[in-house]
Design a protein around this nucleic acid. Structure first.
Lengths: 351, 351
DNA sequence: ATGAAAGCGCTAACAG
DNA sequence: CTGTTAGCGCTTTCAT
């Protein structure tokens, strides 16, 4: 072992076949440049015999095509992003690209570091769910030819590049509308800090639906967590959030009959706390979530929610990026994915 | 836009500073080769002025160091693997490496394809949770100098390379022991097909504990799913599995008082079905899972389980790989991570 | 302390 | 159809 044999190159093959590296390259790189059948066969045979494996570094330097794309997400352990990334990787692979995965851990500095490394590594494109709003660096790279597509969170200052968004506002509207149609008039909203377009959007949709039905918003039923997102794992954090926030509502003299949560994990925290307090869902209180994570259909009662297509988001974003890599005229610059109501068992009809 | 300016290279800088590319390289690549302060400063200044970004392809070709490692897992959307990958990526980044992420989707062919691509892309190492048992290819690459570390599933035929394992057998033993200590004597085991060392290990531990206490195994209480893992998402699949398997047990005239599941997702399916059937956990039946996924503490009753350190597995495996990249004498070739009992509320004391 | 030059493995003009 | 050759951007030996 540790006998790291010098690896065989097209030069070795050329020598053995008594031809040129150019011809070998033409054959082995699947170029459509004409090469006689005879030579071709011989080259392939020798390549196999020598156990040749192409070194992509060479090609990469020459062609300036790394066949790699970078993906930056807050954390791959968040099931939302792992679904997105799955969609991206699959699509990338089918098109001959590889994915360099980076976790930004909610840190703008780390995000910048990743962007720089990826650019230096010559990724041909970047898919990013950015948590920062400083785009100088990104814009700089974009103007140098880097293709970027932003997912989920709107990056308004982005010079160029495209976005895959999700209509959170409509999602909030649909969820609230569903509650209204089930007869609820006293509806609460529990949410993590409204420091992101997504969460603000849901809240706006919530208000839209209420106003449309001439229902006043009861401020006491709007519970916003003020904790800073800390060291805790995000999922657990949101779960705990749901528990804490619903407690404030339960203690109110006048309780709402239904709750909308800013995401499923928070909704599950709500469910858990209600169960702990002996409040039956949906009989005594209805709950609707937001995201449609798998978990929602595994718990009891199964969680009604708003579907946010995750893997599709990955697939779309990657396709969009690839299109930009291969063509000059970009047809589409923005896709807004649509929310969809998923009815399960956590919302009751009220009479 | 689309003005893809030719990017600036060390040659451009050398020209402007009126020095050689060698010196520029020495300064900009943080080599410890001596360069006068004066020149150094001038080079750095010009580099900044020209907005220089190093092209790693050049370095990579020259040094044959891609500073990238490959990671192949069945599916990143499986929370187990996303935790592992998070640990890997973090560790890799801290050491200047990037991660090329691949999903094998339980397909040996795809796995092989990924291994080939990664090798061609000159990854310096590979961390793999293999689903195949054909190692000819892997062994071939290993003998060509590729460093690989296998995680979770034992790869016995691996020529060289190291493994990070988990003591599933002891885990199964500890879980069963816990049930026994809580007074249970009638214990069932529900599991996905026992086609993997991990699942077989748990079952052996289960048997070890029972035999140790002179308890005969009741075959009817051992439920093995025979479904082929199909197109369904794995999590949902396991959840459904749990539901189906426990149904067979519920219908028995003589029911066990406690159930061990081969993983938490299956256990949660069991919980869900028991709830649906009106069987109270843990009062009427105790359930213990295996894995300690986050979900387990969010449901009600919170799931007692066996902790399988996931992120740590990623960190360890990456550190082990990096050690092998940098040193010749490998101290450790195998790490076996230890299971740990997590007591929550799904197991009752029996008198 | 600095520079000239070779070359990593590959591709792609260009010439024949 | 085939070969010659010039690099891609960088590092590194060797000479100065």
């Amino acid at each position: 072992m540790i006998v790291i044999k010098k690896s065989v190159t097209i030069y070795d093959i050329a020598k053995k076949v008594e031809t040129s590296t150019a011809t070998v390259s033409r054959v082995l790189s699947n170029s459509n440049y004409p090469v006689s059948q005879e030579l071709r066969k011989k080259i392939i045979k020798v390549a196999k015999a020598l156990n040749y494996v192409p070194n992509m570094s060479g090609r990469q330097l020459k062609t300036n095509k790394s066949m790699a794309i970078g993906v930056i997400v807050p954390s791959i352990s968040n099931p939302f992003y792992s679904s997105v990334v799955l969609g991206i990787e699959e699509t990338a692979r089918k098109n001959g690209y590889n994915v360099l995965l980076c976790n930004s851990h909610q840190s703008p500095e780390l995000e910048i570091e990743h962007i720089q490394t990826l650019f230096q590594k010559q990724v041909q494109g970047l898919i990013i769910s950015s948590i920062s709003d400083k785009f100088d660096l990104l814009n700089d790279y974009i103007s140098r030819g880097l293709n970027v597509v932003a997912i989920d969170e709107k990056l308004d200052n982005l010079k160029i590049g495209c976005q895959i968004l999700f209509d959170y506002r409509k999602g909030g509207y649909i969820a609230t509308k569903h509650l209204l149609e089930k007869g609820h008039r006293k509806i609460g909203y529990v949410t993590a800090p409204m420091d992101r377009p997504s969460r603000i959007g849901i809240f706006q949709g919530f208000k839209d639906a209420l106003l449309e039905n001439n229902i006043m918003i009861n401020e006491a039923w709007i519970q916003v967590s003020n904790n800073v997102e800390g060291s805790l794992n995000k999922n657990v954090y949101e779960f705990k959030n749901g528990k804490n926030l619903i407690r404030n509502i339960i203690n109110l003299p006048d309780r709402p009959t239904a709750i909308l949560a800013c995401n499923d994990m928070t909704a599950i925290g709500v469910l858990n706390e209600l169960e702990a307090q002996g409040i039956k869902v949906p009989d005594q209180m209805s709950v609707i979530g937001f995201d449609n994570i798998e978990l929602g259909e595994m718990i009891s009662p199964a969680l009604s929610t708003i579907d946010h297509p995750k893997q599709e988001m990955g697939v779309f974003s990657c396709n969009m990026l690839l299109e930009r890599l291969n063509e000059d005229n970009f047809k589409i610059n923005e896709i807004v994915l649509q929310p969809q109501l998923i009815e399960r068992n956590s919302v009751a009809q009220i009479y």
